[in-house]
Amino acid sequence: MLEVSGLRKAYSGSGAARTILDNIEFQVPERQFVSIIGASGSGKSTLLRCIAGLTEASGGTVLIDKRAVRGTPEEVVYVFQEYSRSLFPWRRLIRNVAYPIEEAVTKDEAAAQARAYIGKVGLAGFEAYYPWELSGGMQQRAAIARALVKQPKYLLMDEPFGALDAQTRNQLEDMLLGIWSSTALTVLFVTHDIDEAIYLSDRVLVLGSRPGRVIADIPIDLPRPRDQIESKENLRFSELRRQLFRLIITPAVENAT
């Protein structure tokens, strides 16, 4: 169980202090798929980075299984939006994917597990390729495989499919859902794409901006497994879409302090 409570992040640079996140409060039960959406600049990435321990919060707590998060916890892996920059260009695919576990297990074991996850994300056969020899979509698959090889409990993804074309995005969405449904993963998925958020999630958190606060927590009551055509033709999908759009477009200044 992930519990975020009173989370704050403020920057005090060049004069005026800027509060990016203010009093963020929510819980995520295990195995849930939660998307976080919000207008640009609402602090979605900052929130994710604070939970992952990559950015230090200015206040509040993050508890994972009742233990406070300090630094970058073992059970949490962060997947970057800039996938091409996060893969190591000096390592071939298999050694990139093996990176998180290569210290913990033998060389052969690491390679075997890496191979398994490379297969799971649909990159079988590309083990010997360098990252820059792969397409954007393949690079992001590689980054996901690398995140999964560690078998984390929590996968934090920061707009992972934002820079990809629509077709690739759909493919990777379905791949991610497939992996999620067959493991014990809890996913926090930041996106600016409302349709994507609805399609993937059990639940969508909406972040208002300036400062970022949770202004809505919407359960997604669409049947699983999701389908790119069926789910999106569902009337409920449109209703949720309208609801979420309104929340994002309308400035959320009416939040009580």
Binding site: L54, E74, V77, F80, E82, R85, S86
Partner: peptide, 13 residues
């Protein structure tokens, strides 16, 4: 060095 590379190292402890 690209900070994303460093952060990658950090997220893998």
């Amino acid at each position: 060095i690209d900070p994303v590379l460093i952060d990658t190292g950090r997220t893998f402890q």
